[in-house]
Design a protein around this nucleic acid. Structure first.
Lengths: 147, 147
DNA sequence: ATATTTTTGACCTTATTTGACCTTTGAATA
DNA sequence: TATTCAAAGGTCAAATAAGGTCAAAAATAT
């Protein structure tokens, strides 16, 4: 079994019990006898947003990497939605999705407003091809974090 | 937990009850077993204006440092914030702003998560120059919608 | 044989801690 | 009154303690 998989399992094992875990990158690298950047590799490939994790970190003295598990239990609806969204989505399609989300009570009015703004055509000042792509990415990630 | 955070918490705890606090720098440094300038560091990084505090001090005999909590309304706080954000902003600066927004109770946890995700470096797959610019735009617009 | 994934390491950025040296101020002294 | 001195607080840069990035090398998979 590859080291990255072993580290992945170790972290997931902790996350079975806890909602989040705070890592010391160097300490962990030491524990698994690898270079520190391998920890980043594992995090980037196994604990990214679309895998259902949320990662924050700080540098400097007392720095840490926090991996938070996103709790899916609440929303099959939302997960279906996220999975149905392709790599690109237009402003219009987004509006429709968000309206139904609100009607179905999966988000508060402020939350919907926030998502609408972040995916809005006027706010996303980019050329068209890339815009629908960035929008899809933002939208999916935001939806996941609604859970 | 790092010392600076501990000192921060201690001060904030006093400020829960009081509108302001008068510190003796050397005495406090002594209490926390650190050099006096660390007190300045904590004040500079945690109790500055954009965090909603106002600091006055006097040197010489009978000197003191007074930290006063500013009671911003949500609207004032957010508008200040929005106006202080330039055309470009990094992921890191954004995190700091959002954390203090949450600490000041001007946004719910989900709202903060949504904004963090929408402005996140990994989600915004764009080249660096344009990324900080798009992020600033998204951030400002989302903040306004928090009102 | 080639493409993809993993491992490794050199170099970078950021946050905190520490200490040497500087400035201001009020009180005591000349 | 002018001078001096001790008691504050201020500044800044070095040392230390994290974590981040990126690309080359190695290993695996197709």
């Amino acid at each position: 079994m590859k080291l990255s998989d072993i580290i992945e399992d170790w972290i997931k094992n902790v996350l079975k019990e806890e909602q989040y875990i705070d890592l010391q990158r160097n300490e962990l690298a030491n524990q698994f006898n690898c270079v520190p950047s391998q920890i980043n590799y594992v995090i980037d490939t196994r604990f990214n947003n679309s895998n259902g994790y949320y990662v924050e970190s700080r540098r400097g003295g007392g720095g840490y990497i926090r991996i938070t598990k996103i709790d899916y239990s609440k929303g099959e609806y939302i997960m279906n939605l996220v999975n149905s969204i392709k790599d690109n989505i237009t402003n219009n399609e987004t509006q429709i999705i968000l309206n139904s989300l609100y009607k179905n009570d999966f988000a508060t009015e402020t939350e919907i407003k926030l998502i609408k703004v972040a995916t809005n055509d006027k706010v996303l000042r980019l050329n068209n091809e890339i815009k629908d792509n960035v929008r899809a990415c933002i939208l999916k990630n935001m939806l996941i974090n609604l859970l």
